[in-house]
Design a protein around this nucleic acid. Structure first.
Length: 602
RNA sequence: GGGGACGUAGUUCAGUUGGUUAGAACGCUGCCCUGUCACGGCAGAGGCCGCGGGUUCGAGUCCCGUCGUCCCCGCCA
């Protein structure tokens, strides 16, 4: 292979096959850098040594595929290239075979400047030849293999579940596949193998995993693709802690495969605490948490600032940002997306001039040092009295709005000043379990409570009473449902949600109760999940599991900014595959067979 | 659905206040070159300035629309 030759190979005959990475034609001597996925080796064609081979080498162009046959030679000391692993040797070629020519590609794998992504995606096969992409895809392989090996060694079976399955419209939109055999009916591609893996538990395969493609027809983001790969697992008879242990185990193996040691067990944090300290359910622990600085101001100060004293007054500290210019300060405002009347105070200096005591208090309480940026987020007094909210919930909706706004701003600032605070160094992995999520979330547009994780998640044992009380009040924002906690957990890494799981409901009566609490009639539940409810009646073991995004794990390990860098053939923000130009219209004949008529756009 | 950024040679970019023939680097083609390794030198080819409309004596530049790519909000049980 092109990356394999070493000084110990000197004198041996060798055949190297690969792509012409670069050619340096000096006239009577031609150097070819020959590339395959293992690396690059220099082949030399000297007219004096072999005129025929040299003549043929003159025909070579970038990205031709060739076989070079010759003798491995130790390079002279003054011609060694220290920049590449094969730099101490070269192949003195006496024969060359052009296995295939190449048109002039739109860009070269050897280019130093990165071509725009549109062109890269259209010519993905060339883009994937670049060493960064080769590295990422190899990393992806290593990670999946490590996960497979680890889980297999722990007694897990890898079991496949169907891609053509049943639409259960709830949550994300389904990708639909029309049935030809039964016109007018549709399969759905799975958003996750959720119900199948639970049924595998009922079937007695007490440890299941699958590295599996999932599909969601929702809008894309840098970290969201319509088809993505999950490390999906489920086990029977576990406590949450047992699931966490397994996840920590395979993540350690995966990170080790990528060359990193990580520390287990991961720290754990309640959902409510995550919201209060970070304003988000996937905290990035690499930067300081919020500090509530309400008590640093006098009631008169707050009154003068028109700040609601009953809501959080959050100081966001971003370390080592340094003095900000007027313009930089002004740029903070547009980064702030106010929810629930939240307001931002980005000019801490002005605040300090006006309220020196408060400012000193804030500096002390946040532990701010010289050069740290302090931005305050507070609730507006004009927002009026707090909206009626369930008092038993630890974080009220009004508070959540403030925390949430501040949380997004904290991340935006962290991103913007990453080069200054230097907290985002590669190889710094801060894992976290976020636990005790609320079971239900209020959906303002539907005016009802929805399952926060999914409706198969087991409620907290201690909160069963609340569930009983709330079972008829799905449309009441005050419902006791709001306080029901779920046995759900997320694993978070550096502010990215890697995975989400829960202990499931294994009793049919409780499952029915949840559907009921979600406002589903018995008939509805039966028509959607009848097969599953029925399965629950035949000896279902307690079980639980989790699913982690493989793409996201690899993205972080590869230090990539986007999922597209670690997926061989990704889609654009409009869910288009630029290489094969999917999706496309289909022929009338295909449509007729499926009994589908397409409305022409007007 | 909403907000923002970008679109000039094959590629990465520059292009002043609206003003003559739209530039550079890399890549490409040809010639020269026996130790290069981002080889070097000389010469050359290469442009629907995304597309459509408008303003203007005159548009790469200003305005409107449209298409595409990216980022964010909504959305993602």
């Amino acid at each position: 292979m092109c990356g394999a030759l070493r000084p110990s190979d000197a004198g041996r005959r060798a055949v190297l096959m690969g792509w012409v990475h670069r050619r340096r034609d000096l006239g009577n001597i031609i150097f070819i850098d020959l590339r395959d996925r293992t690396g690059v080796t220099q082949a030399v064609f000297n007219r004096e040594v072999n005129a025929a081979a040299h003549e043929k080498a003159e025909l070579l162009r970038n990205e031709y595929v060739i076989a070079a046959i010759g003798t491995v030679k130790l390079r002279d000391a003054d011609t060694v290239n220290k920049n590449i692993p094969t730099g101490e040797v070269e192949l003195v070629a006496d024969e060359i075979r052009i296995l295939n020519e190449s048109k002039l590609p739109p860009f070269l794998p050897s280019d130093t400047a990165l071509t725009n992504e549109e062109t890269r995606l259209k010519y993905r096969y060339i883009d994937l030849r670049r060493d960064v992409m080769q590295f990422n895809i190899e990393m992806r392989h290593k990670v999946s293999k490590a996960v497979r090996d680890y889980l297999s060694s722990q007694g897990f079976f890898e079991i496949e579940t169907p891609f053509l399955t049943r639409s259960t419209p709830e949550g994300a939109r389904d990708y639909l596949v029309p049935s030809r055999v039964q016109p007018g009916t549709f399969y759905a591609l799975p958003q996750s193998p959720q119900l199948f893996k639970q049924i595998l538990m009922i079937s007695g395969f007490d440890k299941y995993f699958q590295i599996v493609r999932c599909f969601r027809d929702e809008d894309l983001r840098a970290d969201r693709q319509p088809e993505f790969t999950q490390i999906d697992l489920e086990m029977s008879f576990p406590q949450s802690e047992r699931v966490w242990e397994v996840v920590e185990g395979f993540l350690s193996a995966a990170f080790q495969a990528a060359g990193y040691e990580i520390k287990t067990p991961f720290p754990r944090m309640d959902y409510d605490e995550a919201i209060r300290l970070y304003g988000i359910d996937k905290p990035d622990l690499r930067l300081p948490p919020f500090t509530d600085v309400r008590d640093c101001f006098t009631p008169e100060d707050l009154n003068e600032l028109a700040i609601n004293a009953n809501l959080p007054l959050i100081a966001i500290r971003t370390p080592k940002v340094g003095e900000l210019s007027r313009k930089e300060r002004d740029d903070i405002k547009p980064m702030f997306h106010a929810k629930g009347g939240a307001r931002v105070y980005e000019d801490f200096k002005r605040m300090a001039n006006k309220f020196p005591d408060a400012a000193a208090g804030i500096a002390k309480k946040t532990g701010a040092e010289d050069g740290d940026l302090i931005v305050l987020v507070a609730g507006s007094a004009q927002a009026g009295p707090q909206t009626a909210m369930p008092a038993h919930r630890k974080v009220t909706p009004a508070e959540l709005a403030i925390y949430g706004s501040a949380g997004l701003l904290r991340l935006a600032l962290a991103q913007k000043y990453a080069e200054r605070h230097k907290c985002f160094q590669r190889g710094d992995f801060r894992f976290l379990w976020v636990t005790n999520f609320p079971m239900f979330e209020w959906d303002e547009s539907e005016k009802q409570w929805m399952a926060a994780h999914h409706p198969f998640t087991s409620p907290h044992e201690e909160d069963m009473k609340l569930l009983e009380q709330g079972v008829e009040s799905v449309n009441d924002p005050q419902s006791p449902l709001s306080a029901v906690r779920a046995l759900a957990y997320d694993v978070v890494l550096n502010g990215t949600e890697l995975g989400s799981g829960s202990i499931r409901i294994h009793r049919q009566d409780i499952q029915k109760k949840i559907f009921h609490a979600l406002g589903m009639t018995e008939e509805e539940a039966k028509s959607r999940f009848g097969f599953f409810l029925e399965a629950l009646e035949y000896g279902t073991p307690p079980h639980g599991g989790i699913a982690l995004g493989l793409d996201r794990i690899v993205m972080i390990l590869a230090g990539a900014e986007s999922l597209r860098e670690v997926i061989p053939f990704p889609k654009t923000a409009r869910a288009v595959d630029l290489m094969c130009d999917a999706p496309t219209p289909v022929s009338d004949r295909q449509l007729r067979e499926l009994g589908i008529a397409v409305k022409k756009a007007t």
